[in-house]
Write a protein that binds this DNA or RNA. Sequence first.
DNA 1: TAGATTGTTAATCGATTAACAATC
DNA 2: TAGATTGTTAATCGATTAACAATC
Lengths: 208, 208
Amino acid sequence: MDNRAISQAVIARLPRYYRYLGDLKDSGIERISSQDLSKMMKVTASQIRQDFNNFGGFGQQGYGYNVEYLYDEIAKILGLNVRHNLVIIGAGNLGQALANYMNFERRGFIVRGIFDKNPALYGKQLRKVSVQPMENLRRFVADNDIDIAVLAIPKEAAVQTAETLVSCNIKAIWNFAHVDLNVPDNIVVENVHLSDSLMRLSYGIANM
Amino acid sequence: MDNRAISQAVIARLPRYYRYLGDLKDSGIERISSQDLSKMMKVTASQIRQDFNNFGGFGQQGYGYNVEYLYDEIAKILGLNVRHNLVIIGAGNLGQALANYMNFERRGFIVRGIFDKNPALYGKQLRKVSVQPMENLRRFVADNDIDIAVLAIPKEAAVQTAETLVSCNIKAIWNFAHVDLNVPDNIVVENVHLSDSLMRLSYGIANM
DNA sequence: TAGATTGTTAATCGATTAACAATC
DNA sequence: TAGATTGTTAATCGATTAACAATC
């Protein structure tokens, strides 16, 4: 697939559609119109139809959308039909929480390695994966077909580790460090800046 | 402050400006022009000036912006000059990680209580705050001037707990559950949907 | 066939960028 | 004063919404 030029706004909405369609599917609902979905999701029916039509016609006039079919198609668009091996870098609070959170595995994101620079953590088991020294990272990524690295370390270390990862041909970085990473264009970076999120919440309180 | 009608896009960018200005301040830089900042942040100088001018004129012609002054002003806009008491609901992996993560405290977000429904966790200390039964939540929020609740529990429980929190006059919910909460307009909800984020990353890999 | 609802084009709205006069 | 750079207006661009013909 290489339908370029799909806007970030559309892509950002796909996981939410996927979530709602999953719920509908779980409740045994077979079909849904853009109008009904629009009421549930509080977006316009027009937007829903426009969004889906970026990827081709998934609906049928007079009928609407088949829930299961649309759900599966969105999964494919999001690449959820492909398994990914990942490593977690940083076995602190957040790194451990992510390692222990197994829902990602259900979607095909498999934790293969966990790395930390603190020797006290070496060998610690987190869901059967044991923490290794940072020195092993480069080798491990190369040898184990790893395509995603999760950065759960402080910002200085994150910048430096990102460079290492780039040189190991990682495909994507899920960045929890409070810093913007400068990597080549062909590497995907998805940021989760928790402190930014908390500041937006703070703004909301101050200006509500 | 009640400058309404500032777009979400602008608000979403403020924490990033704040981060860069903090870094500049830490490196002892006194002034910065929109052009120089634009190069660092990879946005247009025009956008920077437009964004700041939503809140009044912080710069000076021929000079640029004073870093420290601008940093402090953005802090005020974001409401970071006000302390907030918060409770964490859910002492699982994520709840514990958030409770142990002390950087929030530095910005004035103080963890006052942690709640869980699992009796095995009652009394467990996380940075001197001990886990309490969920039954105590309503009372605690009312008695301790709590204005933010962090939801780190599964989605079914989150929906239900959000209702409780609304009835306790909470001001804001930082929602880590994979569900959209339906609360009155005067309550701020800031979502951190980690699985949505991971799906966007997955899309990036699939379509890069 | 009649009714419903999509897919898609056209209209509107809002956000971003460019340009430049104001001014430090 | 001359040079630099903001604040702000105007132009452009892109995203959202509305409308409706196509079609199931």
